[in-house]
Simulated assay, not measured.
Amino acid sequence: MAGLIQDTDEHKAIRESVAGIASRYGQQYFLERGRAGEGIEELWKDLGAAGLLGVHLPEAYGGGGGGMAEAVVVVEELAAHGMPMLIWVISPAICGSIVAIHGSEELKQRWLPGIADGSQKMAFGLTEPDAGSNSHNVKTTARKTDTGWVLSGSKYYISAIDQCDALLVVARDGDLSTPEKSTLSLFVVPTDSKGLSYQEIDTSIVSPDKQFTVFLDEVEVGAEALIGQAGNGLRQVFDGLNPERILVGAICGGVGRYAIDKAVAYAKERKVWSTAIGAHQGIAHPLAESHIAVELSRLATALSAQQFDAGEPAGEAANIAKFSASEAALKALDQAIQTHGGNGLSHEYGLSELWFVTRLMRTAPVSREMVLNFVAQTSLGLPRSY
């Protein structure tokens, strides 16, 4: 189906490579693994072997040397085949980007090649039960010792840690923080560390990437676990959060494409009283409107990636991309389900099971309300509301 995005030759090749691998597995593979609580390791390894997990990471560490623009193509195309991969956003994008930008040479050598080829994964530990959207209110604490650091606290709604070799932990630096102001430091903590445990959160999301509460009970790590400079964590976090927002925009753009493609195909084939239902404006107009919204969100996502790759401030564009894409995808998915009638709720058609993971994108990684706060205050210059 024609769209507004015009791929470069390189992006077209990446998109075709992703499509080829995704088509070999099919959406039912992804959904069946999600329903059964099983992983997608075969697919993940194939993507890694094709260089599609590290397209944005430095070539010196096994990556493709590209940027967020290339990552957007990969993540969107996977979602356009019915495979919205949260772990791609978390491990290669958030964690990979933070380690690549701020990590020591030792951390880069230790983790980036494995993240790029798919042999290793890293979870991201920011969210906490009581901190919510307020990253400044992180309670998980890191204290310096003679040999490294000790971390204590808990993290909430941590995606796919059961698949991961390490957790990138955002912690309150107990030595540098004051009662008035929390100072953050970041650490790479192996998931087999003594004192680290996790418990699955029972959700309605059908995905191979499950959600967990993570407990850190006096977890000891060496000095090499620190990312960059102690106390510089807030800036480091934001170097991961903009890629996260951009790639959530990409996931939603792909889901929107998938939903509309399914609905259009059904509307052309399904006949009632000898007429294809797509001939009726009650079906055609909502799908056309959904297509317009999805395409506009894809343009916003592409622009945000372009700004990020150019080293320009990308916060506004990344937030707008995430907001517009999540709204458009949810509307497109709902309209696709409606177009299918009762079949929209059948597992055979692969639409209804995408609902909750798509609905999640309106809330995570940043809620639509916090995006609106950001735009109101930063873009429009209105007084702070919190």
Rank of each mutant, 00 (worst) to 15 (best):
I283K: 07
H81G: 09
Q120A: 13
C252I: 07
F374Y: 12
V169H: 02
K262E: 00
E38D: 11
I98A: 14
E32M: 11
L296E: 11
E76G: 05
T147R: 15
D217T: 04
F356N: 10
G114N: 00
G148K: 13
T301D: 01
Q281L: 06
V294C: 09
M361N: 09
D130S: 15
M68P: 06
G54T: 07
G311S: 08
K322N: 10
A336F: 05
M83S: 03
L382G: 04
G96H: 02
A93R: 00
W355A: 15
A131H: 13
V138G: 05
I283S: 01
S207R: 04
I14D: 01
S304H: 01
F323A: 11
M68Q: 13
T141C: 09
A364P: 03
Q338M: 06
A60S: 12
G62L: 12
L234M: 15
A160E: 12
A376E: 06
K331N: 11
Q281V: 10
E38Q: 15
G51F: 00
G256R: 01
T178K: 10
G62A: 12
Q6G: 05
N134A: 14
L176F: 09
A288H: 14
S204N: 14
G67H: 14
L351F: 09
A123C: 07
W273C: 09
R270C: 10
A19D: 07
D175F: 10
E16Q: 07
L196T: 04
G311N: 05
L126G: 08
R33H: 13
E77M: 12
A69T: 14
L380M: 14
E244V: 05
